[in-house]
């Protein structure tokens, strides 16, 4: 039995095991009611502290779905709660001129951004598309984190596409958001082939089995915790990860140690 379970059950958070949520969002959204979608610094802080979330790295829905709003939605939010939040600079390949400008301005917002976020299934251009290349090159050079939405079978961000960018940009730290959901064998192969590629657990632990398979094949050193917050509940996901039967050491890796290494020099 994982000894952290009793502590989380009793207190909801564990001081010696802080949690980094590496895949989150912010803002209300058209297709779903999110009770905590609207950003309020006090409420957000309180929700994060309940589960011992030390830091949450997000990209606003509004950035991803409105080129007119763009990354100011991220900048404004992070600067209201800088102790708890960082953002990914959101990229929409349908507006390459905005990507170029965002990359150009990236250094101005080092207090806000730790890397980039791609949502290719929704933007309908593959992660290897040339319109993303200014950001990929920059991330490769600077060792930034790039969070991809990935899904098994997708022509835009499935395992084949991840392989292309992982080979081309070994300096970027690539998080496979949702771990190429369902294509666990390919996810595992990518993790084995590329030390810069990480599995991220959002949606993986909605069902049992996926995390166990990844852990059996690769161990815990290339896995990070994420929840799509404010979509999904932190305690639910923490309980799910522990219920997969992992050891204390693996839990520490997934909940904070791997994220701390990834974020070194970026926060």
């Amino acid at each position: 039995m994982n000894s952290l379970w009793g502590k989380f059950l009793e207190n909801g958070r564990v001081k010696e095991c802080p949690v980094y949520d590496m895949h989150a969002h912010m803002g209300s959204f058209n297709r779903i009611y999110l009770p905590f979608g609207d950003f309020n610094p006090e409420i957000t802080k309180s929700r994060l502290e309940r589960a011992g979330i030390k830091m949450l790295i997000f990209c606003s829905h509004w950035t991803l779905f409105s080129p007119d709003i763009g990354n100011r939605a991220n900048i404004e939010v992070v600067r209201q709660l800088p102790d708890k939040l960082r953002a990914y600079c959101g990229l929409n390949p349908n507006y390459p001129e905005i990507i170029e400008k965002d990359v150009e301005d990236f250094e101005k917002y080092r207090d806000v951004f730790v890397g980039f976020k791609l949502l290719s299934d929704y933007h309908q251009k593959p992660v290897s598309h040339e319109n993303y290349s200014p950001a990929w090159k920059y991330a490769d050079k600077k060792g930034l984190i790039v969070l991809l939405h990935t899904w098994g079978g997708s022509q835009f961000d499935g395992p084949e596409q991840v392989r292309i960018v992982a080979e081309k940009y070994p300096g970027a730290k690539i998080l496979m958001g949702h771990s190429c959901h369902g294509a666990w064998d390919e996810t595992i192969q990518l993790m084995k082939d590329f030390p810069n590629v990480y599995a991220e657990l959002c949606a993986v632990v909605d069902d049992r089995g996926g995390l166990e398979q990844i852990m059996d094949a690769c161990g815990s050193k290339q896995i990070v915790f994420g929840t799509d917050w404010p979509w999904f509940n932190h305690h639910y996901y923490i309980g799910a990860v522990i219920d997969s039967g992992i050891s204390d050491q693996d839990a520490h890796n997934i909940f904070h140690r791997n994220a701390e290494k990834l974020l070194e020099g970026l926060i």
Binding site: W5, F8, L9, G12, V205, D206, D207, R208, H235, Y236, Y237, I238, G239, A240, I242, D243, S244
Partner: peptide
């Protein structure tokens, strides 16, 4: 699904 998820 994982029971500990809904319990926690």
């Amino acid at each position: 699904r994982y029971p500990k998820a809904s319990i926690l």
